[in-house]
Nucleic acid binder design. Structure first.
Length: 291
DNA sequence: ACCGCACCCTGAGCGC
DNA sequence: TGCGCTCAGGGTGCGG
């Protein structure tokens, strides 16, 4: 679900709810591969500690803790990180949503998909992590402990240069889109923004990466930065699950050119947007605008 | 090293 | 109503 823009919007909103606050109690769901650190150890490591910072690396969030340890979070496909007391229909199952009056926004109550709840020593709101599919991750890194996941990340998508992208794609036969999704090359890119950036750059996602020119790599790098900065401005994309920590929807889905628009006319040339599956991921492009 | 694919999990929405 | 199918902003790990 969340790509760089959604993770960055989440970071900006959730940081004031974490930084400078002391953890009183941590509640978790049952052990599962969602917890890279077992829940019991996670609770012991967090309770009584003060959170000092919150940074983003690719699609990861990393909270600094006063004893030098760090809390690593990943939202996976359906992860939602938000403050207790917020209201959003996106936090409810569709069956419950549909039973509500259109404008009803009941305050969230922890459910079976709420895997982490952090309560603080002050009277302010708790922070909750909900994740239906459990592709998200929580890990407590001991002081000085390295994370193989973070170590593997390539250049952040907001900072990638055309030259670096050109270099990384030489000799590669895989589709250019597949390489944009490789977090070791461009950290933070996901399915929506890869498709959108390739549309803006005029490059077909299926093109073998090694045959993308230097000028096109420049355009792709610029387009990635542009779509992601614009999405951050609009609060991210809320297509099915994504909700900001304050319960608000993003609006970038209204500015999509190709993603999830298969069969609809291209906004630039009118040709029908095409869809194919590439590396198990749904891929969208305009046959007129992208070569 | 690289590439494509199976898999992890839960739910929504569709056709029948 | 229910069944079976496909699809979904994620990443890892395997065999070829």
């Amino acid at each position: 679900m969340p790509e760089l823009p959604e993770v960055e919007v989440t970071r900006r909103q959730i940081a004031p709810l974490l930084v400078g606050r002391r953890v009183a109690r941590v509640h978790t769901s049952r052990p599962s591969y969602f917890f890279l650190t077992p829940p019991a150890r996670l609770r012991r490591g967090l309770e009584g500690r003060e959170l000092r910072s919150l940074e983003r690396a690719g699609k990861y969030l990393l909270a600094g803790i006063d004893d030098g340890s760090r809390l690593l979070l990943h939202l996976g496909m359906t992860g939602q990180l938000f403050a207790s007391g917020v209201a959003s229909v996106r936090l409810l199952a569709a069956s419950r949503r549909n039973a509500l009056a259109p404008e009803a926004q009941p305050a969230f109550r922890p459910d079976r998909h709420t895997h982490l709840r952090i309560e603080f020593a002050d009277t302010g709101p708790a922070v909750l992590f909900r994740d239906v599919r459990k592709f998200g991750k929580v890990q407590l890194l001991a002081p000085g402990e390295r994370s193989v996941r973070l170590d593997k990340l390539g250049t952040d998508a907001l900072a990638i240069s055309g030259a670096a992208l050109f270099e990384a794609t030489r000799g590669r036969s895989a589709a250019i889109k597949t390489l944009l999704l490789d977090q070791a090359i461009v950290a933070g890119t996901g399915n929506i923004y890869a498709d959108e950036a390739l549309f803006l750059a005029g490059v077909r996602p299926t093109r073998p990466a090694g045959r993308v020119t230097r000028a096109e790599c420049e355009r792709i790098a610029e387009a990635l930065r542009r779509v992601m900065l614009r999405s951050i401005e609009t609060g991210g994309s809320s297509i099915s699950d994504y909700v900001a920590p304050d319960g608000a929807d993003g609006a970038y889905q209204d500015e999509r050119h190709v993603y999830a628009r298969a069969g609809e006319p291209c906004l630039a040339c009118g040709r029908r947007i095409r869809r194919a599956v590439l590396g198990q991921r749904s891929t969208h492009w305009c046959p007129g605008c992208q070569r």
